[in-house]
Amino acid sequence: MSTRTDRLPRTAPEPTSRTAPGTAGRPPAPYGRRAATLEWIAVHALAVAAALFFVLPFVFVLLTAVMSDSQALTRDLWPNTWEWGNFRTVWETPGFLTWWRNTLLYAGLGTVLAVGSSIPVAYALAKFRFRGRNLMMMAVIAMMMLPPQVVIVPMYLFWSKQLGLSGTLWPLIVPMAFGNPFTIFLLRQFLLTIPREYTEAARIDGCGEFRAMVRVVLPMARPALAAVALFHFFYCWNDYFGPQIYASENPGAWTLSYGLESFKGAHQTDWNLTMAATVLVMAPVIVVFFFAQKAFIEGVTLTGVKG
């Protein structure tokens, strides 16, 4: 575990610039330049083909988003007219802004609460020795692997009949204040990599455990915190099942993921507008990715890891 972070792009910003396996340190003689050229062509031809597979769906969605109604369901792939107004139409659809606001509330507040409440738990699980710790870690993992559908029936009854909170996003946001298993798991994995000496030094300086955590460990864990926050934000942003259960009966509480689907219903299947709405839901995620690419990739690597 302890060596993982130094293999991440943070210290090796361009992993691909390192010598790739199989091609490493190979004496060029037995193959010669021609073989190397052929390999370059083969690899890049494949890469271009794969890139087409990954990128073309985006391209078609974008092209359809700027088509006129009448063209959207024809076999013409290139827009005859460029209807940039479609985005405006979608943006001005009653409800669209509400969905944005709700999604930001759910994702924003949910992330702050989930990360905030998970930090001390992950810290305790990584740094304290106590009986039952392994058992608790197993419970965290079990909860992490649990599909939300398993407990949805009693949870729904709890939130709607006991607390009268159906038709709002609170049943989705409030539980975030009680530790999120995935966030706890990832943070704990990262905190294990920070040597005990740091916290011990802090304690000798007279810091309490809480201050040791806040003053010494958290600043070191900044990249991991960024990664888990991003993951959580995207989890909420993408969540469909939660809003479908709790918020669906009140259009004022819909999120983008839930509203997007109904968009097609209300617009009688105007695919151009539906695709424009799709673009507007995908765009923020992609913009955030470009700003936070490093944190993201580290986060993904953190999930799968221990050599």
């Binding site: 009268g164 159906s166 038709g167």
Partner: peptide, 11 residues
């Protein structure tokens, strides 16, 4: 949704 809301009751 109607079914769900009639069951849930509430304000």
């Amino acid at each position: 949704k109607l079914n769900q809301a009639l069951r849930a009751g509430g304000g």
